[in-house]
Simulated assay, not measured.
Amino acid sequence: MNANYTLRDEIRDYWSARAATFDEQVGHEIFSEGEREAWRALFLRHLGPGEGRRALDLASGTGVISHLLHGLGFDVTGLDWSEAMLKQARMKAARTGADIRFVMGDAERTLEAPGSYDVLVTRHLVWTLVDPKAAFREWHSLLRPGGRLLVVDGDSVSDTLARRMIRLVERLVPGLAGAPHAPSAMRETHERILKRVYFSNGARAQEVASLLRDAGFAQTAIDRNLKPIHREQAKNLPLLKGLERATQHRYAVVAVKASA
């Protein structure tokens, strides 16, 4: 492999390769109004209504979260470093007539102006970070005083009792888990990346919150009540996949920048 080809490059290319089918998967796209309402409730609980405030959707992918924020009245920018993802996001915004700004950028080094956003949101990004300490400092700098960061993530790495039981049932009754999310080559790439990122042992809520405080956030709070979202997602998942999702360590962390 090219010595100049970094882990960041591999992560970018992995998600670019998945862009065309990204919205086909539960947990990426939203497939019911019930799930959409559950996401809105989460955002309203921690961010409040948009009212024209500026929001940055970090690692926006195909723009699913950007559209949710836009629907709540935020002035939204979606940032992603995969051109393939941005192409999908821009086409989706054009179809719906949503006035969302999509820009190319690395979520760990955004190049956005300091103090230019009221709200930052990330979904399923933190576990991929190479240097979360630097990323969290960057995100803190992007917020205005009193601004809020909402991290939605989880630990799908740790081997829990529930996961071991699910694997046993799957061996006894093949097919209950449904088809894998990605072809085997993609899964191998995913596993290779996972071994090298900061949270290779799983992104746990307490550690994420602690790192956010170290980065300068004045206060943090952990919200583990994502069950309304997971219940709706489970309706579109095979039985074992739905059970696994419900038993994983998934959470939201809200972090607030001190007021001036």
Rank of each mutant, 00 (worst) to 15 (best):
R53Y: 10
R53W: 08
R54M: 14
A55W: 10
L56C: 15
D57G: 06
L58S: 08
L58Q: 04
A59R: 07
A59N: 00
S60T: 15
G63S: 05
V64W: 06
V64D: 02
S66C: 15
L68P: 03
L68W: 07
L69N: 01
H70S: 05
H70G: 01
L72G: 10
F74L: 00
F74D: 02
D75P: 07
D75R: 11
V76M: 01
G78V: 04
L79Q: 13
L79V: 15
D80S: 05
W81E: 09
W81H: 13
S82G: 13
S82Y: 09
E83H: 15
A84Q: 12
M85D: 11
M85S: 10
M85F: 14
L86H: 02
Q88W: 09
Q88S: 06
Q88L: 11
M91C: 11
A93Y: 12
A94P: 13
G97D: 08
A98Y: 14
I100C: 02
I100W: 03
R101W: 04
V103M: 00
M104D: 02
G105A: 01
G105Q: 04
D106M: 07
A107T: 12
R109K: 12
T110K: 01
T110I: 00
L111I: 05
L111Y: 07
E112N: 06
E112M: 15
A113M: 09
A113R: 13
P114W: 04
P114T: 08
Y117A: 05
D118N: 14
D118W: 08
V119W: 06
V119Y: 07
L120S: 08
V121Y: 12
H124M: 05
H124F: 13
V126R: 00
W127K: 02
T128C: 02
T128S: 08
L129I: 05
P132K: 04
K133W: 10
A135E: 06
A135T: 14
A135I: 14
R137Y: 03
E138K: 08
E138F: 12
S141L: 04
S141A: 13
S141P: 05
P145W: 09
P145M: 03
P145D: 02
G147R: 04
R148E: 10
L150Y: 11
V152H: 08
G154S: 10
G154P: 14
D155E: 08
D155R: 03
S156Y: 15
